[in-house]
Design a protein around this nucleic acid. Structure first.
Lengths: 245, 245
DNA sequence: GCAAAAGTGTTGTCCTTACACCCATGC
DNA sequence: GCATGGGTGTAAGGACAACACTTTTGC
């Protein structure tokens, strides 16, 4: 009985040297860009800097930097946040990669966009020292590179996300009134909401802690201040099943 | 009256040479990996290949390739699909980037994960010629690199996406029975659904076209065959507003 | 007292869920 | 005639939308 040839589905020999393989790959510059949202004066704002490229003189640019050797992508985004705002422990999430070969005038640069949400009141100190500023989303017109597109994608991402996850609270002070919360949702979603139904909705969720404190220094009847109960939310996270399109 | 110094918030001079700037950036190898889902025998399957690295001998790997010069990321994903399955005009979407510095044994490689959905029946021909195979998700155990993690992320992404968008139809033949559709949802979501309510749900959406054809060659009462009305769906796309977490 | 916003309930509609029986076909 | 899945209706409960008036505070 003769030996049949082994039916090896790998027609090519296996690669022994992974390093040599990787070194044979083309390489591209990689950056992280942060779309940092804040909320102030009932407006959604983004933290931006004037572009340092002559070509984009006077135009706004996202806060970005290249990714360092052996740095996680998330870590790069946190590093940029820390460097620019002095903040740590801030909400941060990857949105997606942008890789149009012509998106940077200096040659191909891939960027990974991150969204970050922070409370402007808590973070204003460090910002004075830099050249960065809060720009309201609605007044934002021309941006450098493809950053307008990145902002648009991140804004849509945020609109969807705050409806499904309790992200919005990252944009508010620790203690907030229901009015502030509703203003936030209205500003981000670009709609108006019925006040009674809005309050009922959050009351029925039972995720707001009544602090027994009231607003101060308002020129009208002060409202109650609440905190979001992250602990309870994490415990009861809803398993979302429902076909709807 | 003396000239005041210009209050230039840019303390550094603007950069003239964008090319030189980009060339000063560190570079990394960049790949695209495709998580290609199919549906067969009431099971969700993924199109995989055995790793060509000795280190991962016998383990499954996603279909991936590095991104070429001047190639859009999306185009790279479509190219991989075309090369491996012969298919064009297939559903494809970017999920996110994976950039752990240690994810590839040969050194740092960033990868952008794409999800693709296709109908196994339509695409089986080209697959024979390659070394790739359909592996059912539930039987999938060890994978090369961080590909198990990428698959998990893409699977969660798919579970969420099919509830909000009519993606599932990409996994079915052009004409399908309600039973097939329900099996698909049950397999992907890992739940069982009430048949009457499922049918009522899709009936009320009014997005299925009755083809007036029936299933053939089934060993029981044949069901009606439907097509998804993409045109009507696009026209009436719901604007989703509803806080729910 | 007036401006400005806080706070509160009810009703109707729609959507979701739970649940059981007869029908058509292949074998 | 039996096994398999196709096809259908109803009732109850829960969520959401629409809607107006009284209360509290600062000025």
């Amino acid at each position: 009985m003769k030996n049949l040839p082994i039916d090896d589905t790998h027609s090519n020999p296996l690669i022994q040297d992974a390093k040599a393989l990787v070194q044979s790959y083309p390489k591209v510059p990689l950056t992280v860009d942060c779309v940092i949202f804040g909320f102030e004066e009932n407006k959604l704002k983004i933290l931006l800097i004037k572009s340092d490229l002559e070509q984009y003189k006077g135009k706004f640019s996202l806060l970005g930097d290249f990714v360092q050797d052996n740095e996680e992508l998330d870590d790069a985004a946190y590093r940029i946040l820390k460097q620019r705002t002095g903040m740590e422990n801030v909400y941060l999430d990857q949105v997606r990669a942008f890789g149009n070969p012509a998106r940077h005038p200096g040659g191909r640069v891939i960027t990974i966009a991150y969204c970050s949400l922070l409370n402007i009141q808590h973070h204003s100190l460090n910002i004075h020292e830099n050249e960065i500023e809060w720009v309201s989303l609605e007044s934002l017109t021309e941006m450098a590179f493809d950053h307008q597109n990145i902002v648009n994608v991140c804004y849509s991402w945020l609109q969807k996300k705050i409806q499904e996850h309790p992200l919005g609270f990252n944009l508010l002070p620790d203690k907030f009134s229901l009015r502030e919360l509703q203003n936030l949702y209205e500003a981000i979603l670009g709609i108006t909401l019925d006040r009674r139904n809005f309050r009922k909705k959050f009351a029925s969720m039972d995720l707001l802690i009544d602090t027994n404190e009231m607003e101060q220094d308002v020129s009208h009847r002060p409202g109650k201040l609440y905190q979001f109960d992250y602990h309870k939310y994490e415990k009861n996270k809803r398993k979302w099943v429902g076909i709807d399109f």
